[in-house]
Design a protein around this nucleic acid. Structure first.
Lengths: 249, 249
DNA sequence: ACGCCGCCTTGATCAAGATCAACCACGTGC
DNA sequence: GCACGTGGTTGATCTTGATCAAGGCGGCGT
């Protein structure tokens, strides 16, 4: 990937990959996996590094293996909106398009499993499993993007913050085993600025609303990035939407 | 489709279909088209009719043939956000999911080419062309959803209105032949309320900003729904983003 | 130790847009 | 004709969140 000198990691076997069953490769069988294994390259990026700039040619695409990256776009005067959060197993880039529509920035240190775009496009053309998985992932992302539009367009600052915390709490609980329950603790992978960019707010408003939620006992916060949710239902309630965050089937 | 008694139209041959080359079926060859032709049904809906309610089971899916439908979701207290505009050739529904994540409402009278979900899912599993086309369409929709997130999160009311008008003007110009040029006239397919829902504003703000743009000579407006853009570049300028609206390749 | 920088918080003030409230221009039904 | 409903506009006022400004805290380099 351009503009950076990422470290190239060792070559992890696909079979041992932590995201094997959730990434683009999830539906591929052993034989196809071997081919993917042969053409993939691991790259690492440090927190803050930009993997791609909006408008720039994307010669490679890939999957986040660990860490968090963000998708964002800026207006000419500097106003910035994050339009996606890329978590482990999420796909970076899109087949059939040369230019990146958005900036891709590492929010934490990130490990990415990359492929040369050209090679990957060829693989996809021959692998229904790969294509099917990409379709499913894209449909899911579209749903969450639309969900986010509701938040951006209609929720209050407090509801936005509560929604974001609920999402991170839920994902975090899911990662570490259980369903979101009471008393769960997690740390925020985002700075206040990143939260603001994600929610369409300023950092001051984010900070104030975090303090307000703490004051109201919805969250506990020893350090700015260490959050405890004593009552998950209460947090969801503050998020504004009745359902538990849009579980569909 | 449930909750409605749509009129069933005559059976238009796929080969004569106005959206033949832009809809899901765009990549399919003659032999597959015959199969689609055999299982499709046309349905019509009147302006204001709801095709699906969020959370409801979707037994059928399909393509908008003509008219405009909207995708929207409401918060429990009634705040409403439109999350997508479905124009001719756009796809309604998603394979692999039973429940509709959003309300689908006809904004004008709408003609839809529908398939039973089960049958369509089977077709997709067997047709790479269909699947590939759906992937491309979904990726495009994802990009525009993200574009819209930037608008919702960071643009001012005036910029939002200008952006929407620019988009509609551009699409309208494209439909009727030429590239967006000066002095183009079109009529808004949306009420002020629909515009407000789309832009995350109130109808009063929409109305005021429309008046302001008129006062400033950016648009002309004899009737509320009849717009003339004397200087397309000036309109784009008001929209805030420098590029001409995100043309990518 | 010190200063500095990044990240966060808090306060005071301001302004964009929401809300509340009339009112207009229509079409439609009686 | 008139009453009524829908969609749109405009004005006055209020509220939310942005902006401007100051300061706290922890880490890090010298």
């Amino acid at each position: 990937m351009p503009n950076t000198q990422p470290k190239i990691d060792m070559h992890l076997r696909c079979g041992d990959c932590p995201i094997r069953h959730r990434a683009v490769c999830a539906y591929t069988q052993a034989d196809e996996l071997v081919k993917l294994d042969a053409i993939k390259t691991y790259k690492t990026f440090k927190a803050g590094e930009t993997l791609f700039w909006a408008g720039e040619d994307m010669a490679s695409i890939g999957s986040v293996v660990n860490g968090v990256a963000t998708l964002a776009r800026s207006l000419p005067d500097g106003r910035r909106q994050m339009v996606g959060l890329l978590l482990p197993s999420d796909f970076i880039g899109r087949p059939g398009r040369k230019k990146a529509p958005f900036d891709v920035v590492a929010a934490s240190d990130v490990l990415v499993c990359t492929f040369q775009k050209k090679q990957f496009d060829e693989m996809i053309a021959k692998s229904p499993a790969l294509e099917r998985r990409l379709l499913d992932m894209t449909l899911d992302e579209l749903d969450s993007a639309r969900e986010w539009m509701l938040l951006l367009g209609r929720k209050t600052a407090r509801e936005k913050i509560a929604s974001l915390l609920a999402i991170i709490a839920r994902r975090d609980a899911a990662m570490s085993k259980l369903t979101p329950t009471d008393g769960l603790v997690f740390n925020l992978p985002l700075t206040r600025e990143a939260m603001a960019d994600y929610l369409g707010l300023t950092i001051e408003t984010v900070s104030r609303q975090m303090s307000a939620l703490k004051r109201d006992g919805i969250i506990e916060m020893e350090e700015a990035r260490r959050i405890c949710v004593p009552d998950y239902a209460a947090l969801l309630d503050e998020a504004g939407d009745d359902s538990d965050g849009g579980v569909l089937d």
